[in-house]
Write a protein that binds this DNA or RNA. Sequence first.
DNA 1: GGACAGTACATGCATGTGCATTCAATGCAA
DNA 2: TTGCATTGAATGCACATGCATGTACTGTCC
Lengths: 144, 144
Amino acid sequence: MAELDSPAEAGLVARWRELLARHAASACALDRELGERFGLGMSEFEVLERLVEGCAAGGGHALRVSELAPTVHLSQSALSRLIARLEKAGLVTRSMCESDRRGIVLTLTEAGRERYEQARPLHREVLAQTLGGGFGAACEVPSD
Amino acid sequence: MAELDSPAEAGLVARWRELLARHAASACALDRELGERFGLGMSEFEVLERLVEGCAAGGGHALRVSELAPTVHLSQSALSRLIARLEKAGLVTRSMCESDRRGIVLTLTEAGRERYEQARPLHREVLAQTLGGGFGAACEVPSD
DNA sequence: GGACAGTACATGCATGTGCATTCAATGCAA
DNA sequence: TTGCATTGAATGCACATGCATGTACTGTCC
């Protein structure tokens, strides 16, 4: 017959479902809103944001794909195609890396920066609405 | 030029990234492990679990699709196809609802219950590893 | 009863994703 | 130098997803 979860397991499952619900709500809303108004998916926005941040640190809005990869939760192939979409949309530029010619350097175009700046307020607004009040399961410790 | 996020927005973004990371780690691990060893995706397992829970409440392991839908974070079409996969795999049975012939009633087969019972320990274990102690566990190789 | 809006689920289609593979460039060793 | 394992990224392919639509059934209003 069915064995029951231990209290620890039950708490784990509860946290997992909470995480699933929050993720679904935010991700779904972000995809819809950003897609509708700016033609960007959630991950596209995320990549643009990393490029903007990379620019602040570096100098020329440039970032290696291999540096970007660990920060976005996508497979290597998915990231490659996402970048291809961004390039096709004129938001980033792919160029060969000088020091290692296997590598690709991403440059944010002016249009890319503008699109990001325009989309950011909506992104923050959606997050505030979906994550806003509650302090999520992500940071809680299972106790009961 | 770029306007900076307010402290509140920065906190929101930090929470969002944390949530993304946790979700990616757990979801990826669950999909891989459950898929590899039991031929189940994360959502497939989730649906089986709802059916098992539904059985505990009801009597005959039966649940309307329309009752199931709000508890899984999938579109209606995705859920329909997921159920078709489960049925094809012999884990659930679709039958017409007597009281409302538009509706579909799902019944967990014996094989479905067995598969669930077998998979559950691994499911809990993966959750414990990704949500529990290990913080930042990624689906990819941990960057050393 | 008949017309009609609404609900429950299935399906065609376009797209995004991951896995496996491929191609090119690098680093190392003999 | 040549040979070989490794790394960075692109691509073929299978598949899961969401949107829009289709189909079947229900309930209501006339």
